[in-house]
Design a protein around this nucleic acid. Structure first.
Lengths: 357, 357
DNA sequence: TCCCTGCGGGAAAGGGCTTTCTCTGCGGTA
DNA sequence: TACCGCAGAGAAAGCCCTTTCCCGCAGGGA
């Protein structure tokens, strides 16, 4: 590889001058020398060594991002938001997939710190695991102590600014909608227990059911991987244990799609025989058939906010931005079998007695 | 940030020794010093500066990848294959999204070169743009001249090894299937004209139709963005111009999903009134309703091959690996309206006269 | 007793770039 | 004419590590 001094030698100038021309330094250089340097760069196909540059300027510019998996639509959308702001500010993003492996998450924090990123953004659920949480917090604190900025998305238990989708309110929304539609036998297709996202959404759902005088026994909650196959499998288990279910809440849209697949395989009409509500409103939700009723989270906006926080001025105390969830009614939810929607909107408790199981 | 000499000073050793302990050098260090160094590392939360390391070892290890968009399932799958091999070999991947902007693609080649990657993989369609192709080739050649390895996926016009899905054969497969089902009025929802992927797939399709005595007039081909909305829009235009179409080939699955959305909006039954065939077989294809008939490309395998080529020993002349396409019959394709499948399988030419438009 | 060997450790030379500091030479002012 | 100031260029000091080279010392063989 050609180096800067190769260029300088070829142009008959000092490396200092060559550097100034190439970086558009504020220091003036005569046109003649400038020309010669530029010509040499072109002839040698010179590209500056990024590592040497980054080492020489103490300037930190890149931003590190740790997500579960960028190709998961949930994170793809968030990343889109992150990118938008980063690009506007001329920042490079280094994106790492943790694949929900806590150890890998820890490793990536170090890796990114080692790469001298100006800020670090962690997106995705936190874990119910105190030892891990403490470790991660230590690392983040150490990073912040050296002037690094930190923001987390969708997890509250860490230092640094936080952007939180209102998972609990979203769960509540989903639950209320189904209760309003007259459903009383509601099953839940949940993500891994260890994730705070799972428990937050579940808590919201539970709260809604409680408001309608229902409870949510453990046998009506099945935990599985937060993806399509997990959803399909959990739905099968749910149905086997409790065939009279009239509605299923899937704790994310991928799982909801899996649920739909299982229901189709078992020839259960949606929403005729059973309703389904998802969570997240990923883009594909409107394109499955029937189109998925789901709880929308402002994913892109979450990314935008997080990046803005981290690139803006630091606050003395961590800021927390909570972003609202919104119910999107589409075609997988309907009144409980045989009952027109109108009659289902009477007061919750009054309707309870007449409902199955 | 703590530096190596901070650690060394604190441990009361030379930076050389500290470095040896931290990197597990082959040179022996007594246990006592080792302990002291490790303790200092922990106390200072020391993380080596990756840029300094990369600069100091001339060793190039990371691999650069340029794709259109990792969150596009097509590239997500390819990336999965790339990752698999890279991880096995302990290589870090730097992934860049070009968003199909040729200039950005060029920039990223430089950026990655600047980051001293050991190899470069470009995935995604090439462009019908000689000026751009030449420029990119120059850059790649310059990179190869300095010992860099290059592989491309899905484009043939560049130096370096190539992994090619058989787009043309895939188009042919889709066309033959529909012709066999008795379709004569076939429309195409195509990606951007400037992409070689579009023209390759279209050429294959055309070849199939020709074999069945049909031609493909330009009014039955609509070009749009290679995504869901592009597919929806192109389908609408197609239908407006030619309402008697009995089948649509979408040149990728995202477009096919858009096509399905438009057909649903217009209450056209699939495959009852109109058949749809997609391309790529992305994971979601089996989960839409009706499940999408499509041409499968071995996406993960393409990634695996490309990375293997690039990390293996260099060949004196560029290698080209062509990977076969395969037709996956699902539920969006069926015999032309009112005609049982059997009768449609007679010789192509004989059936032509009796077909609409 | 002397020399050689080998081990454990440090000194120092890069690696490629940026940037401060220094130097030269010129035009302008007193 | 002497001096000052400044523009434009180069010298050189880092940035933080790795790794080669070298040194001192202890142990073993002659």
């Amino acid at each position: 590889m050609a180096t800067l001094s190769d260029v300088a030698r070829r142009a008959g100038v000092s490396p200092a001058t060559a550097s100034r021309v190439i970086n558009g330094s504020s220091k003036p250089v005569t046109d003649e020398l400038r020309e010669r340097v530029l010509a040499a760069v072109a002839e040698l196909q010179y590209v500056p060594n990024a590592h040497a540059q980054l080492l020489a300027r103490s300037h930190r510019s890149a931003v590190g991002v740790i997500v579960h998996d960028v190709s998961d639509p949930y994170f793809a959308e968030i990343t889109r938001g992150l990118q938008r702001v980063a690009t506007d500010q001329g920042r490079l993003l280094m994106i790492c997939n943790s694949y929900r492996d806590p150890d890998r998450e820890l490793e990536y924090v170090e890796l990114l710190r080692g790469h001298q990123v100006a800020a670090l953004i962690l997106a995705g659920s936190g874990y119910h695991d105190d030892a891990f949480t403490r470790q991660l917090n230590e690392k983040l604190a150490a990073y912040e102590a050296t002037g690094g900025r930190v923001a987390v998305i969708g997890r509250h238990e860490h230092s640094g600014d936080a952007v939180m989708p209102d998972n609990r309110a979203g769960g509540d929304l989903a639950g209320r909608e189904l209760c309003e539609l007259g459903h009383r036998a509601i099953g839940v297709v949940a993500g891994p227990r260890i994730l705070t996202t799972t428990t937050d959404r579940l808590a919201g759902l539970r709260q809604a059911l409680t408001a309608y005088g229902l409870d949510l026994p453990e046998r009506r909650v099945r935990y599985a991987e937060f993806d399509r196959d997990g959803g399909a499998e959990a739905t099968a288990r749910l149905l086997d244990a409790d065939p009279e279910l009239t509605a299923i809440v899937a704790l994310n849209d991928s799982m909801a799609i899996g649920a739909l697949a299982t229901l189709r395989a078992r020839s259960l009409a949606v929403p005729g025989q059973i309703s389904v509500v998802g969570f997240d409103d990923m883009p594909i939700a409107r394109d499955v058939t029937p189109a998925l009723t789901t709880v929308r989270l402002p994913l892109v906006d979450m990314g935008v906010r997080a990046m803005s926080l981290v690139l803006g001025t630091a606050a003395p105390t961590p800021r927390i931005e909570v972003l609202p969830a919104e119910l999107i009614r589409r075609d997988t939810s309907g009144p409980v079998a045989g009952r027109p929607r109108d009659t289902a909107t009477s007061t919750p408790r009054a309707r309870r007695a007449g409902t199955a199981s």
